[in-house]
Amino acid sequence: MVPESVSAAASLPDPFVPQIYRVGRLRRELHDTVTLELAPSAGRRPAFRPGQFNMLYVFGVGEIAVSLSGDSTDETHFVHTVRDVGAVSKAITELGTGATIGLRGPFGVGWPVEAAEGSDVVLVAGGLGLAPLRPAIYHILANRVRYGRVVILFGSRNPHDMLYRHELEEWRQHLDISIEVTVDHAEADWHGNVGVVPALIPRATFDRHNTIALVCGPEVMMRYSASALAEAGVPPERIYLSMERNMKCAIGLCGHCQFGPTFICKDGPVMQFARIAKIFAIREV
């Protein structure tokens, strides 16, 4: 099974030239995390696939790669959820409605949402890793009949730092998907699960022979999740991870995001676990 490769970059006039976008609606998700809608100042918003990313350029500050976190069928704008962790991301979280921002993309290989049709789908997210998975969840919910069981497992630091909490509660209303949420630590008034998200995998119900697993979160969390999925019987070629490295050119030319024999920006960010398992735990890579 090969993930859908997308050549959206090739359709851009020049993938190195940022297009001007304007910040629309803003939503503060957490104290340090903001979701922005970005609409092109001219022309149409390019199509994207769940799992792809854009390069966001704050003028005078710098450029970073940020996964798309909105609905791929909404053609008016891109949606990005950004956490303040550095100079550029901090500047993005401080933008106001109407501000301009440079944008290149979308780039990269997305989640195999079409290849997963007919299979059970297990989505494992940790922390901000729910953002790159959200477009896949929208797609699966919009095309629910095409999938088998759908299981969403989400891990968060504590009950207060839970990304998209309202949406998780909404998704829970669906009778035909299973959602389990866990937090690393909680006080006694939290009645949900406590523990790490890989621990939810053995408790989940899915057909191990016919499951596609999509995993996104901090790399160490993905390592433990991939192990738990493999232990549960999901073959490594049916486990997909969204990798993160320092992306610069975003089209596989500069080498900043080299990951063993691959480039995360061009061959990823979504990668088949079977393809990277041998180098995944090598810290020098």
Binding site: V85, R157, D184, A199, P218
Partner: peptide, 19 residues
Amino acid sequence: IRRLHATQLQILDVYGKKR
């Protein structure tokens, strides 16, 4: 072993902010 691994992951505080 599973609980030890889980505890290791919790100690790492993987969702915490790293600068």
